[in-house]
Simulated scan of single mutants.
Amino acid sequence: MIAIGGSATGGPVDPFATSASRVLTQLPEKTWLESIAVRRNGDILATSLFYSSNIFTVSQPSMHAHNTAKILASVPEVNSLLGITELPESYGEEAFFFVGGNFTSLTTFTTVVGSFKGFRITFPRDGNPIVQKVSDLAPFSAFPNGVTAIPQSPGSVLVADSFVGAIGRLDLSTGHYDPRAFAFDEMTVPEGAKLPIGVSAMRMKGPYLYFGNPSTQSIFKVKVDSNGYLIKGAQPSLVANISSVAPGLDDFIFDPQGNILLATNSPENAIVHVDVRTGKSKRIIGGPADPLMPDSTCLAFGRGTFDTNTFYVSTGRNISDPTTSARIVAVDASLLKY
């Protein structure tokens, strides 16, 4: 059963604000935000990992001095939620797709293989949002992590499984899941890697599917057609390796210039800018000694009237300190030096 609604959570705490950044909202203890998206009306959606299976929302973040995260929906079938992506407008009603499953440990990334499912949350013009299960995914799905919609193929989404080391394709109408629609060595965990996480995040941009591999600290791209299928014979090419700038790589987005902004997670706790033409990368905000963005996980640009130059960063918490909690940080990109 899916529960909709919930009580308000903690308000903003802003001890480490800079001219370009501030804590938008602080969540209760033992919360961990994994993925973030912004609705057409400007509201923020954020998924929670391991400590709860909630979707939190922040309403009109650019319109209020003090912001509160509220529980929009809970998914008791699983104990963790991961990637979330907006479905194309041609789908009809405003809708997002997300994945969830069961973890037994977050510190060692221990999952219950086969427990992962795909869900859709729909926002009717009138009434409360509706959450529905789309698919049980594959029985050997071990860590479905990042997800992305396909602009010209609204009936399908792509799902990156970080333990399988491949990207799958899910048909939203039938629930059929091809777990290895994209399978390359660049998506897997190399032997001897310190971090056993393969392909984790991906985005469609023009004729390419971009994807990141935290174990190699690299971003790649591979050519696809307009429906998100691999071009015959296409092979991944390296966009950037950020290991010399930041020892971490999580989710990423494209800025208005078509370059990449990525969250580095722990221990770097920073946002890195990547020039997609040259491959050069640069830390632009945060860092190991900066407690503003502990375990930065994902980011998304605002869509309201006053925050189109602002990107929002979801965070986990200080993983060694259970008294800390997740937060959402607002960063004014116009004040950053790339």
Rank of each mutant, 00 (worst) to 15 (best):
F254A: 08
K223Q: 15
I285M: 06
F184R: 11
G10V: 04
T305K: 13
G114T: 12
A20F: 02
G228K: 05
E191R: 13
G248Y: 01
A181S: 15
S320C: 09
G175P: 06
A73G: 04
I285Q: 00
M204Q: 06
S153T: 06
L27T: 02
F182R: 00
P124M: 08
T110P: 03
N41D: 15
P179I: 07
A149N: 06
S334P: 05
K223L: 10
P267E: 08
L24D: 00
A183N: 14
L24K: 00
R40Y: 05
I260C: 05
A17G: 10
Q60Y: 02
T57Q: 13
D255Q: 05
P129C: 11
V224Y: 07
C298S: 15
L230K: 13
V189A: 10
T18M: 07
S74P: 06
P124D: 10
G146K: 03
S334M: 11
G146T: 08
N128W: 05
L170E: 00
T148R: 01
S90M: 13
P294A: 09
T57P: 00
T110W: 03
S62Q: 03
I242Y: 01
F311A: 00
T315D: 09
A8Y: 10
S243R: 15
L87S: 05
Y210D: 07
P144H: 09
I150V: 15
A142W: 00
P144R: 07
P190G: 09
S53G: 11
V164H: 04
K133V: 08
V58M: 06
I44M: 03
S141C: 11
V147E: 04
F140L: 14
N265P: 00
P124N: 11
T308G: 07
T148V: 14
S59W: 06
F103Q: 06
N67C: 12
V159W: 02
E191N: 13
